[in-house]
Structure formats: C-alpha cells, structure tokens
Nucleic acid binder design. Structure first.
Lengths: 199, 199
DNA sequence: ATCATTTCTTAACCCGGGTTAAGTATTTTA
DNA sequence: TAAAATACTTAACCCGGGTTAAGAAATGAT
C-alpha cells in the first residue's frame, strides 16, 4: 500500500534526502505515511465544496486546478505536472470547504498523505518544517508575481510568455484549457494564434 | 528617534503585546529597533529598481502599491492604510531590485525597521517567528484569493464588492486610482458608475 | 477671492473579445 | 474501419472598454 522507492520520481527523493537532509530512516518513515493512488483522466482529486484533508505529490500525470465563476464558467488557475503537489491549500489550512476543483487531464499516479499523517511526520521529523516554510515563501511569491503578470500583461503577451517558458504545456494540454488559463475564450485564442502566424 | 508609546497605533501594541504575548521588556526592545519617519503625500517609500531593505508599519496615512506595464501605465496592486506594512516583500527576501512602487497618497507616518534590526529582533524574541509565519500564511492566502477574484469577477462586480466591503476607500482614494486597482481606465469607471446609478 | 492644479465626467471613435453556431479536424472507442 | 466523442477553427454580430481630447467640477495655494 505504502509507496516503494522504485517507480518514485527521483525529484521527490532528491528534495527530501538531498535538499532537506532527511536520514535514510526519516525518509523511510516519511514515505510510509503516504499512500499510492491512481486517478483516471477526467476524474477529480478534489472538488469545490469539499474539505481538503490531504496533500498529494503528483508522481506522473497532470491536472488542471480551476474555480467556477457565477455564470458557471470554469476558470483555470494553473496546471500541475509531475513533481507538483495537489490540493486546495486554503481549505487544507482552514479546514473549511474549498473553492477549487482539481481534475486530472491524464491518467495519473499520486502519493497522498493525510493531514494527520503529515502532522505525525512533522513531529517525528522537525526538518520538515523547513520544507513547509520554504514552500510557503515560494508559493506566496509566485502568487504575487502572478498577480503582477495579470495586471501588466495582455492575453497575447501571456500567451507568448507561456510559449517561450513552458512550451511543454502545449504538448499535453488542450488549447481550450490554455485559453481558460489565459482568461480568454477558445475562439479568441484561435484568432490570436492566427494573427501571430501571419507576421 | 525611536518611537514612543504615545502616538502609536493601539493595534500595533495589541498585536505584539496581546496576540503574540511579548513581555514588556521584549516589546520595549522591539520598539527601540524601529525608526519613526514622515513621508509627504506623493513621495515614495519605495521605487521599482530599488532593493527593499526594510519593512515599515503604517501608523497614519495611506499609500498605493503599483507596478508599471511595458507601456508605462501604472497598475495598482493594492492600497495600504493604517495598520498595514509597507514594502516589496519579494525584493526584501530575495535581496534583488524590486518591481513595486509604494507612493503615499496622504502625509504619512511610518515606523521603519531595517532588515538587520529585524533579524536582531528575531534572535532576541523567538516568538517573532510566529508572527512572521502567520503573516506569510495570510499573505499567501490573500494572494490566492485575489487571483481567484481576478479570474472570476468582472470589473463591475469587483467595484461593487469594493463598495460593499471597503467603502472607506472611496472616502480617501481618488477614483482614478480605484480604476487602476480594478484594472480599467477612469472613463470606463465613470461610465460604469453612471450605468449603475441609472438602475 | 482668485488662480492653478488636480480630479472627474462626457463624447466620439475604434477595436478586440465574448457569444453563438456551424463546420472541420483530430482522437478515441468499439 | 466506422462511428462517436472531443477538440479546434471560423464567421457574423454585438457590446464594452481603450483612447483621446475637451470641458466641468472640486480642491488647494497664494
């Protein structure tokens, strides 16, 4: 049930064994608190209204995190790929029902750890707090940058940025979702791409 | 030079003495590491390109935090009022030049604490880490909510929200800045307000 | 009180994106 | 391979917001 070292994303090992200097025993304990889980394409790891009671390391696959606007339109906040963590962190920390949907866009494999098990891990492995803190700093910083980006760049500029910095997204994510991520409708993205190739 | 207890926003005392249980000595030490500073209306606490080497508690007054888009338009990220903290936290933590302008919209009084002094305080008063951590959590959460809001609400809905939840803003902040905060141009805000009153 | 500055509104014009719907292309499934 | 489901593009129409510029209103300074 608990994950084995084989078939485990090497970045996971590198992060905790390397970056945060877990001993072999600590790492083994940590790993034993996770549960390997498979989620089919189109199924949800989490839906709005649910309380998020676990985090999950995305070992293989990808997902889209989205919210609904009052007209019921899905608005994609971000995509998650291998080596990302799934969850709705506001719901996780507050214990209240969340607003986020996390839907897999490919058959995926995750390592899930419950809130209780994670607390257990924190008690046994104090170093874990460092990870948590650095993750929080990065996440806060990323969100602020994202806001600045949304404030200063047009949809076209954000599209070109995406193309330049994360071209892999276009290999795996349907354009309609990329449009939603850019906060425009699919026809608008089509027109934009058309405009851009005619230059 | 260092601030006295009089003329100090009671919320400041309440936060550290109350919420975080600073002893009288700890609080006195903490306070002694700040410097009272006056910044005139229209002057800047910080400009893009500068490295942010301090935080400042806004004792009285208000400011706008903005960034420039590539056409040179000012895009307001948020307004700060009494009991907020000024700074560009990405620049503060990274030590690199920041992107944010912090301009006072009223004659203001701040309590500024340098990075070095804050580190000193953290060494002397371990409890301070708690404040820092809770602030980080809140800030990350606020940013995520802000992104969701920008993703799901129209400018008109965000305007109505603002009116309902922070009506005081309209008493102190010129409409042109509120327009920038809502990511629209002043004529558009005017038209919107006109539309709304004719209902 | 007067003048200057700042702020807000209004009008006219244009353009890009939303919307809807139809049609094409691609992928998946049986 | 055929049929079904999914994904993408295109066209036509409309509307709201950007842009510019001018004028009105409010605020501040002398």
């Amino acid at each position: 049930m608990a994950p084995e070292l084989n078939n485990l994303n090497p970045k996971f090992v590198e992060l905790f064994r390397g970056n945060f200097g877990f001993t072999e025993e600590e790492f083994a304990l940590f790993l034993s608190l996770f549960q390997r889980k498979y989620i089919c394409k189109k199924d949800y790891f989490l839906k709005a209204g649910e309380v998020c009671k676990s985090k999950a390391y995305l070992n293989t696959g990808c997902s889209r995190n989205f919210v609904l606007d009052e007209k019921g339109h899905e608005r994609i906040l971000f995509f998650a790929f291998e080596d990302w963590w799934l969850g709705d962190f506001d719901s996780y920390y507050s214990g209240k029902p969340g607003t986020n949907y996390v839907q897999m866009l490919e058959d995926s494999e995750v390592l899930e750890i419950s809130k209780e098990n994670f607390q257990k891990a924190e008690e046994e492995i104090p170093k874990l707090k460092q990870w948590y803190t650095s993750k929080m700093l990065n996440s806060a910083s990323a969100s602020r940058n994202r806001i600045e980006e949304m404030k200063t760049l047009t949809a076209e500029e954000r599209y070109l940025n995406l193309l330049a910095k994360q071209p892999h997204i276009f290999q795996r994510i349907p354009l309609q979702y990329i449009a939603s991520f850019l906060n425009i409708e699919p026809p608008s993205l089509s027109r934009m791409r058309n405009r851009l190739t005619n230059k």
